[in-house]
């Protein structure tokens, strides 16, 4: 089970003087249940890539296969869109219904999943940390953070196997960001693969199993967070800043201090402290 992308090329403005390849010859694999982050500068093609994963865009060349469904087969497109939930940037702006319940049942109704809508709505609300009292409220009267969680829940409502999110933490303050990431982690642990598209390398390093770095429409690197840091410390990718802690970790290792990698400040502090105790003994 995976999203498998082979030699994907996407060209905007084909046949005009403005022709530009947003993605060229991209191949990658997103395993089911994993947390993969796609990082890159604005214009690296990462949002275009996200839209290919659920067949909103179709390849000019190459192939996208979700589990055993290919986007080249027209009749499978709807099922692909259900399997791969796509949450756009600032998803709270897509809310339109009178009540949260209607908002949450929009997706399921579109796919003809009309059984037990109430139970389903409650379940997905719970997944984003809101209780059933929200069901009859107007989505427009919620706080910014709550709106965003309802929007994510509305995508979760059709039980996607993969959840693709474009800059899910954009515009949130520290506590909002922390809370949302915790929820996504929980969703990921319950078996849904998370694909996070972001320019925030810090969050990506902290949360992901694997990181794919895009640069000018090509895969510059893919690997574990640790490998990514090592790669980027010697091959800087424009527009992506190595987080300060990762930078420190690289510099320490250059001085021969091998410390287990982490991007979390307190874990890193603990690792350094343990190293010190180790050497002292």
């Amino acid at each position: 089970m995976s999203i498998s992308i082979k030699n994907l090329t996407h060209i905007y403005h084909r046949g005009t003087p403005l022709e530009v390849a947003a993605l060229s010859d991209v191949s990658l694999e997103i395993p089911g249940g994993s947390w993969t982050s796609i990082v890159g500068h604005t214009g690296s093609g990462k949002s275009t890539l996200a839209q290919h994963m659920n067949a909103l865009l179709l390849p000019d060349m190459g192939e996208v296969v979700v589990d055993d469904l290919s986007v080249s087969s027209k009749k499978d497109l709807r099922e692909i869109r259900r399997k791969v939930g796509l949450v756009f940037q600032y998803p709270e702006q897509q809310l339109f219904a009178e009540t949260v319940k209607d908002e949450l049942s929009f997706g399921p109704k579109n796919w003809g999943m009309t059984d037990n809508l109430d139970d389903l709505s409650e379940k997905v609300l719970d997944q984003v940390g809101l209780d059933r009292t929200y069901l009859d409220r107007s989505p427009f009267k919620l706080s910014g953070g709550e709106k965003r969680r309802v929007a994510i829940a509305s995508v979760l409502a059709v039980s996607p196997s993969y959840l693709v999110l474009d800059e899910p933490t954009a515009g949130l303050d520290a506590s909002g960001r922390g809370y949302l990431l915790k929820l996504l982690n929980k969703i990921n642990n319950s078996g849904t693969a998370v694909v996070m598209v972001t320019h925030d390398l810090e969050i990506a390093l902290d949360m992901s199993d694997r990181i794919i770095a895009l640069q000018l429409g090509k895969v510059a690197h893919s690997g574990s967070p640790r490998d990514t840091v090592l790669y980027m410390s010697s091959n800087p990718v424009p527009g992506l800043l190595l987080p300060s802690i990762a930078d420190l970790w690289v510099k320490l290792s250059k001085y021969g201090m091998e410390i287990p990698f982490s991007c979390d400040p307190s874990t890193m502090a603990k690792n350094i402290d343990e190293k010190r105790r180790g050497t002292k003994k």
Binding site: D173, A174, M268, A269, I272
Partner: peptide, 23 residues
């Protein structure tokens, strides 16, 4: 800080922990 809805820059957060542990 946390109760104010703020978050230390990671480097400062780590620095604070290290100082607390006496590293």
């Amino acid at each position: 800080l946390e109760s104010w809805g703020l978050e230390l820059p990671p480097m400062v957060a780590m620095w604070r922990e290290l100082a607390k542990m006496g590293t």
